[in-house]
């Protein structure tokens, strides 16, 4: 009797070890390790930014991790540099870039997914190609042209330049989004007596708010993070965007303890808006790819 019970428990232990749940736990563990490696550079600036400034350059490995949450680096970075000003500039540029690119790409994306007209293929090709043109190639002629138009060192110039890569990107996301709205709804609108403009206003626009938010978030991230054009086009300290400001501030100073500590804090601060927006909207980007933008 008792022998029988033991046998049963053993076999159930074995099958438990082989069960899908246990396998999933193992795989989850491996995935966690892999993710730790991948996210490590970012995790590391986050951890370093919270270390105390005094022993920042300590050679003792035990000092590498923060012992307690110390926000001194953040205070220093925000007080000593003009990070607030630069972030304000970045915000201004990124918000206007986003508005501009949504304003022009939302109607364009709608027309490209829904209307039949001559020139549609040409328009799609221009959108794709303009995303493929490397920034560094455009940088020089754009600088020269903007200087001629007296738009260098102005946010207007930078916003226009950022739009060259945010417009194709937002159009791509919005086209994908519009494809998910059934055509029946528009057709019902026309049948019910609405003109194209009213269909856009009463039916398409309310339904595309989630798509507009996601596309806007991506446009914001791209513009906020952009370094090259901001470096070349803006040349006064007061008009720097956050990435350029951080670069200028820290290359101008020697490598002392507080410099490194501040750089870590500044890097986290600059990354935060993009990372948070991305965390919230990332599923739209992945979903866009999953919906068959790329099929084998």
């Amino acid at each position: 009797m008792s022998a029988l019970t033991t046998k049963e428990t053993t076999s159930s232990t074995v099958s438990w070890l082989r069960s899908p749940q246990v396998k999933a736990m193992w795989l989850t563990l491996i995935a966690m390790l892999a993710i730790l490696v991948i996210t490590f550079p970012f995790v590391w600036i986050l951890l370093s930014s919270l270390r105390s400034v005094e022993n920042f350059l300590s050679l003792d490995l035990r000092d590498a991790l923060p012992r307690s949450l110390d926000f001194t680096s953040y205070r220093l970075a925000l007080q000593r540099s003009d990070l607030f000003l630069w972030m304000g500039n970045s915000l201004f540029v990124a918000v206007l870039t986003t508005c501009l690119s949504l304003l022009v790409s939302a109607p364009a994306a709608f027309a490209l997914t829904r209307l039949r007209f001559r020139g549609k293929d040409a328009a799609s090709i221009i959108l794709v190609l303009s995303y493929a043109v490397p920034s560094i190639m455009l940088a020089i002629p754009l600088l020269v042209l903007l200087v001629k138009m007296r738009l260098n060192n102005s946010f207007i110039g930078l916003i226009l330049v950022h739009a060259t890569f945010t417009i194709p990107f937002t159009s791509w996301i919005l086209q994908d989004f519009y494809r998910s709205i059934p055509t029946d709804l528009e057709e019902a609108g026309y049948i019910d007596g609405a003109s194209l403009v009213r269909v856009l206003w009463h039916i398409i626009l309310p339904l595309s708010i989630p798509g507009l938010l996601a596309a806007g978030a991506y446009s914001f991230i791209l513009s906020w993070n952009e370094f090259l054009f901001a470096l070349i086009l803006l040349n006064s300290y007061d008009s720097f965007t956050a990435p350029v400001g951080v670069h200028a501030y820290f290359t101008a100073r020697g490598a002392d303890e507080s410099m490194w500590a501040q750089l870590m804090a500044a890097s986290v601060i600059v990354s935060l808006p993009s990372v948070l927006l991305f965390a919230y909207f990332q599923r739209y980007l992945i979903a866009g790819f999953l919906k068959g933008a790329v099929k084998g």
């Binding site: 996210t39 993070n225 951080v246 870590m264 991305f278 990332q282 992945i286």
Partner: peptide, 24 residues
């Protein structure tokens, strides 16, 4: 969550990527 974390480096500004690698 894992999927989101793998794609996270896309959203990190180059300046911060550079700072992290310089420091590491």
């Amino acid at each position: 969550i894992f999927r989101a974390l793998v794609t996270l480096p896309w959203a990190v500004p180059t300046i911060s990527v550079a700072a992290s690698f310089l420091w590491l």
